[in-house]
Every structure is written in structure tokens, then in C-alpha cells.
Amino acid sequence: MEPLLDIRGLAKSFTLHNQGGVTLPVLAAVDLSVRAGECVALHGRSGTGKSTLLRTLYGNYRVGSGELWVRHGAARIDLAQASPRQIIELRRSTIGYVSQFLRVIPRVAALDIVAEPMRARGLGAEAALERAAALLTRLNVPERLWHLAPATFSGGEQQRINIARGFAVEYPILLLDEPTASLDGDNRTSVIGLIDEVLARGTAIVGIFHDGEVRERVASRLYDMTEAKAA
């Protein structure tokens, strides 16, 4: 079976022009393939570039060099060569990303934030809100919060809204950055349940899970970030 995500010789460094032009190499050579139904946990101490890799896979960081092939429907696209419009299209339909922190949009209610990716894929308003409500219920977000903008929510509440948003659409590829970091036991279990479901459906997941218990539970295999550092 062809991988959904195929990373070859991916390198990424940052050049800080305003700090003497110093270049920080973060990823030197990432080779990684992820197939449908696989969950790859990025493994390594902090500073080994786990978040950088995840962000690069989402197109949030520019690919330094190498290839980053993404299966998009029947086609394959190299994210390293993709145009902004292609990346937007990939994000709309192929790659989902649950970041650690919710980027709050002023005045937009939690329910609408969750429904938005479904609306962007052309789902009707009613169906989208219905599914958003189901997800928020499942993640134990109290209904009284649904119609409020999450700016004032607690970290855990914001994260659950972020997770609901990430799982709202059945993305073939899902990137998870510490999805359970600020969650307690029950909510963690809910998130694990969601992850299990999408894996069973054939989603390919790349994630950062600091929580060893969660990692054990969901990861098919680990990707050792020290490999990425190898020259």
C-alpha cells in the first residue's frame, strides 16, 4: 500500500537575519513514510525539532530541502513545491492539524470554530453545527460555552475545542501536537477514543505525545528524532 505521507531527506533550518545571520539547523535528514491507519509518534527530547517537523508537514514552515509527498485524493503533491493555493487546498481536504494552542478568532463562538472546517468542505450549516455539537459533547465541553468565543476559556477547554475542530473533518492525514497536554483523565480517554476511531478508518497520524500513557496506547511506532539529526 502506498504511503499517505512520504518524507524523503527533509531538512529544515532557520536563518536569523537580524541576529547576525546565524543559521540554526533543526532537521537534517528526515525519511519517514506513514501509511493509512498508522500512528507515528515523534520521539525525542525537547529541542529535537518535533514541533518543527509537524509544522513543516502542515506547510506552516517552509520545507528547506528534500521532498514531502502527500497523497491528495488520487494525486500526489510534493509540499516542498506546492503553491500557497495548493497548500490551502491540502489543508481543506487532506491534512488536519491540532496545534497545542487554539488561535482564537475574536467574536467567533466555539461551536462555529468547530463547524468551520466542515463548512469549508461544503457541508451545510445545520449538519456542520450538529456534528460540532456532538464532538463538543463527547469532549465534555459544557453546552453553556458553545455559543461563547473561547478567548476566556481555560487552557483545557480551548484545547478540547481545538481537538474537536481537528477531528471535525475526516482528514486522511492528521497531525497532532500534544493533543492531551492540558487534559485530565476522562477527557484524555475521550481523545484516545477519537484517535482510535480515525485510525480504524484509515487515517495516517503523525503526533507528538509527551504523555507516555497516551503514546503507548495510540502509537503504532515511534520515529526517533535523533535520526532526523543524522547528517
Binding site: 537575519h17 514552515y61 500557497p84
Partner: peptide, 21 residues
């Protein structure tokens, strides 16, 4: 020029880096 979040989160040009920082 480029994708909004890419330009803002991973700026390449010295001037963009200065603006963002």
C-alpha cells in the same frame, strides 16, 4: 510572499523577520 501563516511563522527575508519580531 506566500501563504499567510508561513510568511508570519517562518519568515525568510530579513525585513519580514524584523517586522514579525
Amino acid at each position: 510572499s506566500g501563504l499567510t501563516d508561513q510568511v508570519l511563522d517562518d519568515p525568510q527575508h530579513p525585513y519580514t523577520q524584523l517586522l514579525v519580531s
